[in-house]
Computed example of a mutant assay.
Amino acid sequence: MKTTQDDIQLLCGLYEGKEASFRAIYDKYFESLFLYAMKVLNDRIVCEDIVQDIFVSLWTKRREAKITSLKPYLFQAVKYQIFNYFRNNKFSREDLTRLNIVDVSMNVIQKLEYSELDQMIRDTVVKLPKRCRHIFVLSRYHHKSNKEIAEELEISVQAVKNQISKALAFLRNNLHHEEAITALLLLLF
């Protein structure tokens, strides 16, 4: 993996003890390292701790570290910490094998983000009242028009619209602000 000029400058600043360089590395890589860990562990708190520990170690050992390529170094550190987590918690060989097949490409990270959001939406949809949930699922997951749903359930088109509006409001109120915006955009289109 090729090291970018930006990463080389950040590493130089890190070795010199420049907090701004460390902060820039943190800002640049925290999210992707966290999502990489989440792909394997699916435990937000553990993953945040792992990534935070890596950055603490990066700062405290900055003078001894012989890092030639920043991004691979950081991802290898996450992989190593995940392995230690599995080992210390007596996870199965299957769990360890799963760790070895994780792909860190942006495409996978984007799929993970979508998958997480989709699961949050589905978990929230399950909490809707039965009739509202049924209409919402027919509309958004079975891609039926309001008219088709109205005919199938023998209700008015306006009743379908009301139930979908009710479902969207429920989602908006039960998801975090950023998640709600993204979820509603996904569900509207």
Rank of each mutant, 00 (worst) to 15 (best):
L74V: 10
C47P: 04
K71R: 14
I8Y: 06
K28G: 04
N84F: 08
V51R: 00
Y73H: 11
E113P: 05
N42P: 00
L70F: 11
R98A: 12
I25M: 09
S105G: 13
L11R: 02
M38A: 00
D103S: 05
Y15E: 06
T60N: 07
Y15S: 06
A37Q: 01
E113Y: 04
N89A: 11
I109T: 10
N84L: 12
R93K: 11
V104G: 15
Y15D: 05
S32A: 12
I50A: 04
D95A: 12
V78R: 03
L14M: 05
L70Q: 08
Y29C: 00
Y80C: 03
L70G: 04
N100F: 09
F83A: 08
E31C: 05
C12I: 12
W59A: 01
Q110I: 15
E31H: 10
V51E: 00
Y73F: 15
K18V: 06
K66A: 04
M106Q: 15
N89G: 11
Q9L: 07
T97W: 02
F34N: 04
L99C: 06
L74W: 01
D7H: 05
Q5H: 09
Q5F: 05
G17Q: 03
R62S: 01
S21F: 01
S105E: 08
D53W: 01
L99F: 03
E113R: 14
R98I: 05
A37E: 05
E48S: 07
Q76H: 12
K111Y: 05
Q81A: 10
G17P: 02
V51D: 02
S105Y: 03
E94F: 04
D7E: 14
V51P: 00
V51Y: 02
L10E: 00
Q76S: 15
V108T: 04
D43W: 12
S32I: 15
Q9I: 04
Y114L: 13
L35S: 01
Y80N: 12
F75V: 06
N42K: 11
V78Q: 07
F86W: 03
F91C: 08
L10N: 00
K18D: 08
A20G: 06
M106C: 08
Y26I: 07
N100G: 15
T68V: 10
Q110S: 14
Q76D: 12
N107P: 13
Y36A: 14
R87Y: 08
V56T: 14
T97H: 07
V78T: 10
I67D: 08
R87C: 04
A37W: 03
L14E: 02
T68H: 13
K111R: 13
A65S: 06
N42E: 03
E94A: 10
M106E: 15
N84H: 10
S105I: 02
N100D: 12
S57Q: 07
R98Q: 10
R93L: 09
L41H: 00
S57M: 11
E16K: 13
K79R: 13
Q110E: 14
N88D: 11
R93M: 13
E113G: 12
C12A: 12
S92A: 10
I109H: 05
E48C: 06
